[in-house]
């Protein structure tokens, strides 16, 4: 009887997770194995793939060094810029804002993140283009300002696109903070500034780490922002991948780059989790 119940329970459990497992296997595991295989293959003369076992594709990676440098510099820099702006906002929302308006203010931060990044990046293409801000600057005598297609424009787009994602985890960690600790610190004679640096900031570090990790990881695979605001001059690994797969049709080389991108993402994630655990002293890290 007990055995029969157990078997039945096992069948139900298996039936519940089977579709998800199948989907993950067919559209995540299998495709990843495919690009691993492609990455050690050769390019067929007409483009596409020819079976081989060679590390030539990986040896060729330095030819795309510029994409790697741009990504590996601008992604963390953009992420830190987001942090500098996001922290005061998160602090204000969690600690200073009146509870009456808090919910609506928080919603106003979240909503842009879930609206089309393409449209939001287009907005800046529009603003930075020759008829936008440079045009206005021209009217007041500052001629020939080019903002579009510079690293600065890409960074601006990054901050604009990912600021909400940085604000949220910091806000969550600050909101959870026990107010009595702040009162205790004040009662013990600490000035507000020293309370902030010795109590508030350390306790919000898990949120800061989560935000930095999330934004950096998403930026590593970014395509749209450098494409639209960098105009082919400031390109990321994502742009190199689109070029290799959809224009020059060098799939094996593109696969090798895709594999390295995943490796970088995993490394960043592991480092972030390491630091977060050390800060929090637990293994509990909120990702959303």
């Amino acid at each position: 009887m007990a055995l029969a119940t157990n078997t039945k329970r096992g069948i139900v459990t298996a039936a519940l997770v089977a579709p998800a497992l199948a989907w993950l296997f067919i559209f995540l595991v299998l495709p990843f194995i495919a690009i691993l295989v492609f990455s050690v293959g050769e390019r067929a003369p007409e483009g596409g793939y020819q079976a081989a076992f060679t590390f030539a594709q990986f040896a060729n990676l330095p030819s795309r060094a510029a994409a790697y440098w741009n990504t590996l510099i601008l992604a963390p820099v953009g992420s830190f810029l987001c942090l500098i702006i996001a922290y005061p906002v998160a602090y204000y929302l969690a600690v200073k804002a009146s509870p009456r308006y808090r919910l609506i203010l928080v919603s106003l931060v979240v909503v842009p993140f879930w609206t089309s990044l393409l449209v939001r990046t287009y907005a800046w293409m529009y603003l930075l283009g020759s008829r936008g801000i440079p045009n206005l600057l021209g009217m007041i005598g500052i001629e020939d300002v080019r903002i579009l297609n510079t690293p600065g424009a890409v960074l601006l787009g990054i901050v604009y696109g990912y600021l909400p994602l940085m604000i949220m985890p910091i806000y969550v960690s600050l909101e959870k903070l026990d107010r009595r600790l702040l009162e205790a610190s004040a009662d013990l004679g600490a000035k507000p500034v020293s309370t902030f640096f010795s109590v508030t900031l350390p306790l919000s570090l898990p949120g800061v780490m989560t935000g930095l990790a999330l934004v950096t990881i998403l930026l590593l695979g970014e395509y749209l922002i450098p494409q639209l605001l960098g105009g082919g001059k400031v390109f990321f690994i994502g742009n190199a991948l689109v070029d290799l797969f959809l224009q020059s049709r060098n799939w094996p080389f593109g696969s090798a780059i895709a594999v390295t991108l995943v490796v970088v993402v995993v490394l960043v994630l592991l480092i972030a989790m390491r630091i977060a655990w050390r800060i929090a002293g637990t293994k509990q890290v909120d990702l959303v």
Binding site: L24, F27, L28, L30, P31, F32, I33, A34, I35, F38, Y49, I217, L218, L220, G221, Y223, G238, L241, V242, F245, W251, G254, S255, A258, L261, V262, V265, L269
Partner: peptide, 17 residues
């Protein structure tokens, strides 16, 4: 992994497979 792997890699890997 399904959440963390960049969209550009998901696109490529699915295409290739």
């Amino acid at each position: 992994a399904a959440i963390v792997v960049p969209g550009v890699v998901i696109g490529i890997a699915t295409l290739v497979a």
